[in-house]
Design a protein around this nucleic acid. Structure first.
Length: 938
RNA sequence: GCCCCGGUGGUGGAAUUGGUAGACACGCAGGACUUAAAAUCCUGUGUCUUCGCGGACGUACGGGUUCAAGUCCCGUCUGGGGUACCA
């Protein structure tokens, strides 16, 4: 029999599907293990060889854990709402549901070819009403909840209503506040509350709901016709499509994730995620501790004596160094603070900064702009007049949108002060403020009244204490994290289950779900700028009367809870039975790209904590362990056309000509050698191409780039499977290097792993004479030798350790070493080969299933218990001691392992090579590390 | 600017706790089998030096700790990723 991978792989893939070999059991006495891949969006381009990298790793772990006796949950599904299908719909008119179905079918076909052990009975699709019914249900739970600071968790909005009914709201000083320090709910009494009408009550509750409708600045992308979240923007352009983004005030659905900022931060400590990923989340949450501080506005006529500007500062110790105040141009106070003389300049500036896109604003960080308002505040401690400026380096969305500028100790304030000739007062010693600001939190406070002589840390404490005593503000924690915008003005997403009655939004009743996405005539906004859902027929109304919400949910909605749905994918009465979520708990191993660090991975943690608060699940974090697979980059090949001709010159000779580098299809290049005949056929204009060769070959140039169609460097897993088989692909992707590392795809080494599988096959089947015909099964029942047992058990040990620490590349090497050793020993013994097959089967499932069957087994190898290594086979009788002089190894000495340190030393000292190397000198010191090394100091 | 991760042969990479640097694989060179090719197998392959035995050097660079450093510490250079007026 020969190694016919095509037939073998097709047969076993069919067998697994027909026998549901990988179905996870919801009722099991076994310990559970949950392995999850990050939710793929099924794009039209299909999978390239970079995508399966993580899937192969997670599949190896899944299969390994099954061998180890775990009840393994390893599901797959699709995050199938999203922009590309909708953009395609806009261009072609084809309903996104069709595009999505086609893309999923293509994905599935590709995934099936690679032999993954997914439990397909649990597949989910976020765009299925069966699924988004529960996404909508969770939205309603969030809408009907508020964050109770007294219990420090989310609760039903009813508990807030009872508080308002009995206590009312005490406003600013109440312990129930909204998330934003600048927006506080005005005070009212319990009886006032009872007299409020429906609209007023709704407006007040909106300040507390965890899903709320609020006015806020959003990132508006005109080209995509929708708002984007911060993590959907890269370098000021939209991540999808690279379109400009501008800031716009809009009424939007948002999620009050900021209420969870502290818990999201604290939770990171217990997670087994990479440090860099946790750091990214910490930075994104951006906790900073400081103080609020009020500056009274100076008013000559004392008519407006009560008005003030509140700022947030992390450096209250530098308060005596304040030389001006800067407001964000969008700050509400600007209008009232602008003096008539300054009005024109200020208005100009506001218009100018509004029109500057985010990208320009970011690109021109060094360009310092601002305008004086004409007004002043009074310094809270010295009573001095301090000018109020506006400048777009101050962000309206952070803190109060106002800063107390201390140019001596803040580089941005310093640049601003230099630009506009404002005073710079040093209050912390240690720097040279003539040259630059001194921002470090080190040194002694000077020129600062009661803070003088303290060091920075003490001064911060004392300053806050003083601010609080004088009622000027209080110690405060601020987060950089913003509430998450939850609406998109797009068609292809979950409808938000809300309707409007007299301008008051109401959530649908749970039993009215799902709210099905309606049909529309076009996937574009309406003439008056309403989202596409406004195009739905007039019948699409709640109770035929009230308008539904017209925006849809963002991409992250469906993916924020999908890991729970896999536990109970078909349940029609709840999103996941509590009994099952209590069994499966959290994901044990989550594999995916680090690009989700501040998006998906933050949102899914948020929803998990929310669902836990309301008692729907029992876990606090979605994934215990997470690994980021590296990106597989493309490796582009180039040909060099001699300018003005149809001649192509090989890379090594191109300097002698004037050439243009052109991408060529990497699939017609082997080890950087171009298949010139295939090249001629590749495109009509190359049909008559001529080549200038070196050493009879055309050598292509190489560059590492992103894998993309336009660069002709896309390698499809289908092609690799067709040429070498899925087992080779799986092994090779793992063999490339450590999983977390990014690396270019390069097929150069693939013959090595393919050859390994053939070599394995030859341990079972004889090489037929002349390579013709069928080789016979040559496996024997003979007793293995000590050496063979050592090879096997050494391998079992290494492989086990390697899988446990996700070092898949080294385990492949170890398999190769094992097969090389067994080949050299001419070992065809069942007692050795059988356990070896089990070890290898997570990596190369098809060939091992086939050989397992050939050994006479009738059950799938996937269910066989993983072999245990036996330490007694690994013990060496002799140790090869390297003998070194001053740390340099000169020779080795094979000695019995049983020898003591003293005995080893004696033997080494008596050795004639030692005598020769010592050349009559006495060593100063002899170090013998037992069973390791001998070192002599001379 | 700040944060994180890297830098080892011609190439991908190995060395898990400081203990023979370069495992395994590719590539390359030579050889066997073959009419030939493919497939397969064998030998060699860090650099310099030597006819050879051997010797010297060698993990980005400069220091340090240690009997012993790719591994630990300090400094520098460099590549990649993330993030950025967050007060």
């Amino acid at each position: 029999m020969e190694y016919n991978f095509k037939e073998i792989e097709r047969n076993w893939q069919a067998y697994w599907a027909n026998n549901k070999t990988f179905a996870a059991q919801n009722n099991s006495d076994k310990e559970k293990y949950y392995v999850l891949d990050m939710f793929p969006y099924p794009s039209g381009a299909g999978l390239h060889v970079g995508h399966p990298l993580g899937y192969i790793a997670s599949d190896i772990v899944s299969r390994y854990k099954r061998h180890k006796g775990f009840n393994v949950l390893h599901p797959m599904g699709y995050d199938s709402f999203g922009l590309p299908a909708e953009q395609y719909a806009i261009q072609t008119g084809q309903h996104p549901v069709i595009t999505t179905q086609q893309n999923i079918a293509r994905y599935r076909e590709q995934l099936d070819k690679m032999g993954f052990s997914f439990d397909w009975d649990r597949e989910v699709r976020t765009s299925n009403p069966d699924y988004y019914k529960w996404t909508q249900w969770i939205f309603i739970q969030i809408f009907n909840s508020w964050y109770n600071p007294r219990t420090n968790k989310a609760e039903s909005i009813q508990t807030l209503i009872s508080i308002l009914e009995t206590e009312g709201c005490k406003g600013i000083d109440h312990d129930i506040l909204t998330g934003d320090i600048e927006k506080e709910v005005p005070a009212f009494t319990a009886s006032e509350w009872k007299d409020f009408d429906e609209k007023k009550r709704s407006d007040i509750l909106m300040n507390f709901r965890l899903a709320y409708l609020g006015e806020s600045y959003v990132n508006w992308c005109p080209a995509l016709g929708t708002v984007l979240a911060n993590d959907e923007i890269k370098d000021g352009l939209s991540e999808r499509g690279g379109h400009p983004v501008e800031r716009k005030m809009m009424k939007q659905w948002s999620m009050r994730i900021t209420k969870y900022a502290q818990r999201l931060l604290d939770g990171l400590d217990e997670l087994d995620w990479t440090e860099s990923l946790k750091e990214a989340q910490r930075n994104w949450i951006g906790k900073s501790e400081g103080s609020s501080l009020k500056f009274k506005v100076y008013d000559e006529k004392q008519t407006n004596a009560s008005s003030f500007i509140e700022v947030f500062t992390t450096r209250p110790d530098t308060v005596f160094g304040v030389s001006f105040i800067t407001l964000a141009p969008e700050n509400d106070l600007v209008a009232s603070l602008t003096t008539p003389e300054q009005r024109a300049a200020i208005e100009d500036y506001i218009i100018q900064s509004k029109n500057r896109s985010e990208r320009e604003r970011q690109a021109e960080v060094t360009k310092i702009t601002g305008v004086f308002t004409g007004s002043y505040v009074l310094h809270p401690f010295t009573g001095k007049q301090i000018p109020i400026w506006i400048g777009d380096y101050v962000l309206v969305g952070y803190g109060t949108g106002a800063v107390m500028a201390v140019p001596a100790h803040d580089s941005r304030d310093y640049a601003f002060a230099k630009q506009f000739n404002l005073p710079i007062q040093e209050v912390v010693s240690g720097g040279n403020i003539e040259i630059e600001s001194y921002d470090a939190k080190e040194g002694k406070i000077i020129n600062s009244d009661f803070l003088n002589g303290l060091d920075v840390k003490e001064a911060i404490k004392k300053a806050i204490a003083e601010i609080e005593v004088r009622g000027l503000g209080k110690g405060k924690v601020n987060f950089r994290l913003r509430d998450a915008v939850f609406g998109r003005q797009r068609y292809w997403g979950e409808p938000i289950p809300v309707y409007y009655k007299n301008d008051v939004p109401y959530a649908l009743d749970e039993n009215e779900l799902p709210l099905i996405l309606p049909e529309v005539d076009k996937y574009l906004p309406t003439e008056d700028g309403e989202p596409p859902l406004a195009r739905a027929s007039s019948a699409w109304k709640y109770k035929n009367e009230f308008d539904y919400e017209h925006s849809t949910m963002p991409g992250w909605a469906g993916s924020s809870w999908y890991f729970l749905r896999y536990m109970d994918a078909q349940n029609e009465s709840t999103f996941a039975d509590k009994k099952l979520s209590d069994y499966w708990k959290q994901v044990d191993l989550y594999v995916g790209g680090s690009e989700h660090a501040t998006g998906h991975l933050l949102y899914v943690r948020f929803w998990t904590k929310f669902l836990k608060d309301l008692g729907f699940i029992d876990i606090d974090e979605p994934a215990k362990k997470l690994i980021n697979q590296g990106m597989i980059q493309g490796r582009s090949n180039f040909v060099y056309r001699v300018n003005g001709t149809n001649k192509f010159v090989s890379n090594g000779l191109k300097k002698e000509y004037q050439t243009t580098a052109l991408h060529t299809d990497v699939n017609i290049v082997d080890n950087d050698v171009l298949d010139t005949e295939a090249f001629k056929k590749w495109r009509p204009d190359y049909h008559d191409a001529e080549f200038i060769l070196e050493d009879g070959k055309y050598i292509c140039g190489v560059e590492i780039e992103k894998m993309s169609k336009s660069k002709f460097n896309v390698v499809s897993p289908d092609d690799i499977c067709a040429k070498y088989g899925a087992d080779t692909l799986r092994l090779y992707e793992m063999f490339l290097g450590p999983l977390e590392q990014s690396k270019p795809w390069n097929t150069n080494g693939i013959t090595g792993v393919h050859g390994f599988l053939k070599k394995l096959w030859r341990l079972f089947f004889a090489q037929p004479a002349n390579g013709q015909g069928e080789g016979a099964l040559i496996v024997t029942e003979d007793e293995p030798t000590k050496g063979e047992l050592k090879t096997l058990h050494k391998t079992i040990k290494k492989i086990t350790e390697d899988i446990e620490r996700f070092s898949f590349n080294t385990s492949i090497s170890n398999f190769m070493i094992c097969v090389n050793e067994l080949t050299d020993a001419k070992c065809h013994k069942k007692a050795i080969l059988e356990p070896l097959l089990i070890c290898l089967s997570p990596y190369a499932p098809h060939i091992t299933e086939e050989l397992w069957k050939q050994l006479g087994h009738t059950q799938s190898i996937a269910l066989a218990p993983f072999p245990q290594y036996n330490e007694t086979f690994l013990v060496d009788d002799t140790v090869n001691y390297p003998v070194s002089f001053n740390g340099k190894v000169k020779f080795t000495l094979a000695l019995a392992a049983s020898l003591s340190v003293q005995e080893v030393e004696t033997i080494v000292m008596d050795n004639e090579q030692t005598t020769k190397l010592l050349d009559g000198k006495q060593p100063k010191k002899v170090i013998v590390v037992h069973k390791k090394i001998v070192n002599m100091v001379v």
